[in-house]
Design a protein around this nucleic acid. Structure first.
Lengths: 215, 215
DNA sequence: CCGGATCCGGGTTGATACTG
DNA sequence: CAGTATCAACCCGGATCCGG
């Protein structure tokens, strides 16, 4: 492994997670939870299979992920983040926040997958722990849907759909991204084509407060 | 430029700053302020000069730095971070925090430079805005010294030495790093060989609070 | 189909030398 | 001082193949 050879926390971190694709692999596992090899490959369009295999080995050696025998019915094994791996969420949150301004326009030939919204969404906190649990369904055009669940002050995210959500948001990726990141207000997004149905207060409860929006 | 082609803030950020050396160049400019080409090269031991030149061009194109004509007396020109560049501080802070546990042992052949402590130090806040300004001098073994100035609630860091600091800390890099990051308590560090002289309260005023130490 | 391993062409990096 | 030029080595991406 190539290192910078500097006695500096930033350099040490980049020694481990600074290689191409590495942080995106961690993003996948933060967004999806335990992943099969092919889940990862699907979430990382363009990665070479040998690179994915080699990165997974390096991440395992660095104690960021581990390989877990899957429960009998289905797959052979799963890749899971360790505690040390989950601690990278702060890095990814800051990177995502910094990169958000570049998502304002729809993106020419970019691929979009709904679960990538999970990282900004997980950075949120449900500030109304006393309110009853609520579920918001996200539908981006042409991709898997996303479910955001709030209960007891925390937020949990997963892909898929749910039968009776408290509220639903549907629209183009850039509007969903910007709203979840707090870059634009909900009303603005609605005016630009975001469709919100159901309990509006459940959605508002989920969005960043003003002082969480740095950009 | 090679991009991931994903409509995702994290991927967009990595498209720009994910290349090898790029974030370390930003670290240098955050720590040192405006830099000459050779300041950067000195702070990045091991970088190839052509790589440095090419990264600087890319950073300039991405509006992260700009090239500024220097004031008459000395250099030809300086590299300065733009606002957009300074906004990367959050990313570097999180990376440094995550990498800190790897600095616990002195590091075999690693190079150390005092100004690398500036990034963790800048992440601090002076929580005693009403107290008089204070200056802490840092002396790591065998390298340039560092000055941390507190006044009116904020902290400012630069290299060099000052004549009459409020307090002084001297010792091996790993102790200084850990203390500034809040990984170990000041007393522990003193017991392990950190020398603190002068006004102890000035030093304590500068260290992370318990709830700022995540690790 | 899943989870890779192998091979190959081309782009990127790094070391050194050299120049205005 | 601030780079450019050159070149070898390595890394990356794409395709192919292979054992469960």
């Amino acid at each position: 492994m190539r290192t910078y050879g500097q006695f500096c926390g930033i350099a040490k971190a980049l020694d481990i997670v600074g290689d191409r694709w590495t942080l995106l692999i961690v993003r996948e596992m933060l967004a999806l939870g335990p992943c099969r090899y092919s889940d990862l490959r699907n979430g990382l369009p363009g990665i070479a299979t040998n690179l994915l295999a080699s990165r997974l080995k390096e991440l395992e050696a660095a104690d960021i992920i581990l390989r877990e025998a899957a429960h009998p019915p289905v797959a052979s094994h799963l890749f899971v983040l360790t505690e040390r791996g989950r601690e990278l969420e702060g890095v990814l949150r800051e990177l995502g926040r910094w990169g958000m301004p570049m998502l304002e326009e729809p993106g020419q030939d970019d691929v979009f997958q709904a679960h990538w919204l999970a990282v900004p969404a997980k950075a949120l906190t449900d500030r109304a722990p006393d309110e009853p649990p609520a579920v918001v369904q996200l539908k981006a055009e042409g991709v898997t849907n996303l479910v955001i669940e709030m209960a007891r002050g925390t937020i949990h995210v997963h892909t898929g759909r749910v039968d009776h959500p408290s509220a639903s948001m549907a629209g183009p990726p850039e509007l969903l991204s910007s709203v979840l990141a707090g870059t634009i207000a909900l009303e603005t997004a609605q005016r630009r084509g975001l469709h919100v149905t159901g309990d509006l207060s459940a959605v508002e409860r989920m969005l960043p407060l003003d002082d969480e929006k740095r950009d």
